[in-house]
Amino acid sequence: MVRFENVGMRYGAGPEVLSDVTFTLPPGSFHFVTGPSGAGKSSLLKLMYLAHRPSRGFITLFSRDVTRVPRRELPELRRRIGVVFQDFRLIQHLSAFDNVALPLRVSGSREDVVHKHVTELLTWVGLKDHLHARPPTLSGGQQQRIAIARAVIAHPSLLLADEPTGNVDDTIAVRLLYLFEELNRMGTTVVIATHNKSLIARFSHPVMHLEDGELTVLNRDAETK
């Protein structure tokens, strides 16, 4: 599913924020990425959701060498990846419904299908009464659920979440992770970046630990080479 080989990454002409990162995530796996602030967790996810290209090494996604794919083929690959961004990155002037509908609309889904799926999902995450509310009028937790709904609406094969439990209390965080586990059971490969150690401790999933841009695998289950 995901394979990194000696990957290095830098922003512009800056120093390497990731060095010699090598790992393989099998399809259907569930991983945490952890490490102190500034260790490179978000950067690692950016490489996975194709927002950034590595400065060296190889990244394989869905059996494609994505370090070399032409730009015009990126949308097709990105549609198979769901992302919960660290700061949600909801579109502020669009309603909850329209935000969640975007991944379906950009891939050309019919409007009746969009309506059915989006209403269903927003009902499921408990936002049935806020379909037409804009993000700024909603609480942090509600915005987060919109962000998650948007990430999963198109049934991605790879789900990436950057600090999804950042600003919710522990009980909600645990419920959120149950939701991700649910999706994982249905076949989605899940990667969650978080520095919340107590949360990680409550689950048995393998952990990739980043420190100063270098990857050390703490949990023996994470397969590496």
């Binding site: 959701y49 194709l50 097709e76 579109i91 975007l102 950009v106 891939s107």
Partner: peptide, 16 residues
């Protein structure tokens, strides 16, 4: 720019 970047990341083509 920000919104366009999000659109790109959720799979929107330049045409869209």
């Amino acid at each position: 720019r920000d919104v366009i970047e999000v659109l790109h990341l959720i799979g929107a083509t330049d045409q869209y």
